[in-house]
Simulated assay, not measured.
Amino acid sequence: MALSGLFLVLFLLQHFSINFLSVLSPELFNETSHFMGTNVLVQFLLQPVLILGIIFHFVMGIYLEVKNNKARPVKYKKFNGGSNSSWMSRNMIFTGLVVLAFLGLHFYDFWIPEIVHKYVEGSPEDAGRYYGELVEKFEDPIRVGLYVISFIFLMLHLLHGFSASFQSAGWHSKYKPWIRKATVAFSVIIPLGFIFIALFHYITNV
């Protein structure tokens, strides 16, 4: 669970880096997206591994939640979870399910149309189409709102899950202060960055 989470964090950083190019330079964003969309290694090795990683992480999350609940069939007579754990740690399954629902929307918006374009319709490749397709999605205020809400929940999920992954993987406690600061910064900056991208394209193209 921890290792799959760390793997998905690396993907998240890579995905953000490419998407942020759409703010800096539409041409560079198109070039990078075209490379990622046509590179054989990315399409037929890294992409399937990523999808399997996502499925594994969320299936394991649900499995562990069910297992933990079964481990204590009789509930506490009085339980104050907030006294020794954060809201994020107690609600990882909830924030995770929201993120999973968002991934479904994101796949519907971008991944499925890409697969249809290339492998179903067999349309000729257009290296300049990616920026326009991205902007078109963010012209809808409802969709932008859903993206913003989803990234807030992603932030909450990462605030506990990212640092906890290092602990689960067995890193020594002497690294904990550095890990905590780095993971909190990442967990806040990256989701806010995605929110900025969505709002930027909505505001500048409204």
Rank of each mutant, 00 (worst) to 15 (best):
K174Q: 08
F107G: 06
Y108Q: 03
F138S: 04
A127Q: 03
G145S: 05
L103G: 11
K77R: 04
V98F: 15
E139Y: 02
M155F: 02
N91W: 09
R129F: 04
W87F: 15
V135L: 08
L154K: 05
R143C: 00
L158G: 06
L100V: 10
E139R: 14
V98N: 12
P141K: 05
L103W: 11
G82F: 08
Y130T: 14
G145R: 02
M88T: 12
L134E: 04
R129P: 01
H160V: 06
H157C: 03
P113G: 05
I149H: 08
V99K: 01
G96N: 10
L105N: 03
R180I: 05
P141A: 01
Y175K: 09
S150P: 10
I179Q: 08
V120W: 12
L158C: 14
I152H: 05
K137D: 02
S165F: 09
L97C: 13
A169V: 13
F110V: 00
A164P: 07
V144F: 00
L103S: 04
E125I: 12
I179D: 06
D109S: 15
Y130G: 06
L146A: 07
G122C: 07
K75T: 08
G128T: 10
M88E: 15
D126F: 02
S85C: 08
H117Q: 14
E121V: 14
V98A: 13
K174S: 14
E114L: 13
Y147D: 07
S85E: 13
R180P: 00
D126L: 11
F162P: 02
W111S: 02
G96Q: 09
N80A: 06
H157T: 04
A164M: 14
H172G: 13
W178Y: 15
K176P: 01
E125P: 02
F110R: 00
F153E: 01
Q167Y: 10
P141I: 09
V148A: 07
R180L: 11
F151W: 15
A127W: 00
R143D: 08
L156E: 05
L100K: 01
N80F: 05
A169E: 14
V120M: 13
G161R: 08
K118A: 14
E133A: 13
S123G: 00
K78V: 07
V74E: 09
I149N: 03
I179N: 08
P124V: 10
Y175S: 07
S85N: 04
V74A: 08
M155G: 06
V99M: 11
G128Q: 11
F110H: 03
S86L: 06
P73E: 13
S86R: 03
H172L: 15
L134Y: 06
F107A: 15
P113Y: 04
K78D: 02
M88R: 05
V135P: 11
D109W: 11
E133Q: 13
F110N: 01
S150M: 12
G128E: 05
S165G: 10
K174W: 10
Q167A: 13
F138R: 04
V120S: 01
